[in-house]
Simulated assay, not measured.
Amino acid sequence: MFYRLWTPEHPKGLIVFVHGAGEHSGAYCHIAMECLNRHIAFAAPDLRGFGQSEGKRGYIRHFKDYLDDLDELIIQLQIRYPGLPIFLFGNSLGGLIAIRYVQQFRDKVAGVILSSPALGIRLKLPYFMRKLIELVSLLAPAWPVEFVKWNETLRKLKWLQAHLPNWTSEMLEDPQATIRYTPRWFTELLRNGTKALSEVYQFQSPMLCIYDRYDTVVNAKLIEQFVDSVAIGEKECFVYDKGSHQLLHDGEVLRHIFQWLDTRFLRSKYIVD
């Protein structure tokens, strides 16, 4: 698994950032640079099948493979930075991976930051279509579907524009972006979104969640349900109404994130003079 690592001279903490679907770690260098300015180490892997990591594009045999890859990286970082508090930060697909990781690998991280976690998609698929996708996932799990190109074609229909992502055109220009997905990837995404909600009681880490109630990609109501259901008292949530899925280039959003982190670092007594 390919990953990028930025390390200040005397880090007070470490963020492990997990990108969203189609993305790669290089898209978040601006957060890494801000972390360096704040004496925070920043590690960002490319998920398998994305960016510069190995694996068939947009394919995963089992969702747990993402979690095992992430755990292997976190173990390496714990050895490299003994005693340093590690915070897991996931965006969209990465947010769902962060949730499932904490639910299955407890006490590995000091806290979790979720940005628009993909607990479900906003577009409501008819029952028969979901079953058809599940069937294709069994019969042809690695069959490639160029979702991004489909999305850009459908967006030419004005009546559909408000219901489809408006940022996929940028992926067509990025040689490291993933524009192909497979039925197995899609079914694993939906299944684990459902599992994340049904196993919410296993989520025991301090949490900051940020999302948009009018998100055009993920189901914001499911995010609200998840946050409300998390039993731990150390949780904080910021909800926006800008109709955006990509929030991590917004200065206000980043200020909320680093304010939350500063509070956690103070509690962990990792303060840089």
Rank of each mutant, 00 (worst) to 15 (best):
M1Q: 13
M1Y: 13
L5P: 05
P8V: 04
P8L: 03
E9D: 14
E9V: 10
E9S: 10
H10L: 02
P11V: 01
V16A: 05
V16Y: 03
H19L: 09
H19I: 10
A21E: 10
A21T: 15
S25T: 06
G26E: 04
A27K: 12
M33R: 15
E34A: 09
C35K: 05
N37G: 15
A44M: 08
A44S: 14
P45R: 05
P45Q: 00
D46Y: 10
Q52D: 12
S53C: 01
K56L: 13
Y59V: 04
I60N: 02
H62F: 09
Y66F: 11
L73D: 07
I74A: 07
I74R: 14
I74Y: 13
Q76H: 04
Q76Y: 12
Q78M: 15
L84R: 03
L84P: 07
F87W: 02
F87T: 05
F87M: 08
L88F: 06
N91Y: 08
N91M: 07
N91K: 05
S92L: 05
S92N: 01
G94K: 08
I97R: 02
I97A: 10
I99D: 09
R100F: 01
V102W: 00
Q103R: 02
Q104K: 06
F105T: 00
V109C: 06
V109R: 02
G111E: 07
I113D: 05
S116V: 03
A118R: 08
I121M: 12
R122C: 08
K124Y: 07
F128E: 11
R130P: 00
I133R: 02
I133V: 15
I133G: 00
E134A: 11
E134T: 10
L135K: 12
V136T: 10
L139E: 02
W143E: 03
V145K: 05
W150R: 03
L154W: 12
L154C: 05
R155I: 02
R155V: 06
Q161H: 09
Q161P: 01
Q161R: 14
H163F: 14
H163G: 04
H163M: 13
L164V: 11
T168P: 02
T168M: 13
S169T: 06
E170H: 14
M171K: 09
P175Y: 06
P175R: 08
P175M: 12
Q176F: 15
A177G: 00
T178N: 14
I179C: 15
I179S: 06
I179H: 08
R180A: 03
Y181Q: 12
T187R: 01
L189A: 09
L189Q: 11
R191V: 05
N192D: 05
T194L: 06
K195R: 14
L197N: 10
L197H: 01
S198R: 09
Y201L: 15
F203M: 02
M207G: 03
C209F: 00
Y211H: 13
R213S: 06
V218H: 02
V218Q: 07
N219K: 00
L222A: 06
L222M: 12
Q225H: 11
S229P: 05
I232S: 07
E234D: 15
F238H: 13
V239T: 13
K242C: 08
K242H: 15
H245N: 09
H245A: 11
D250H: 03
H256L: 11
I257E: 04
W260I: 04
R264E: 02
F265R: 09
F265L: 11
L266H: 13
Y270H: 14
Y270R: 15
D273A: 10
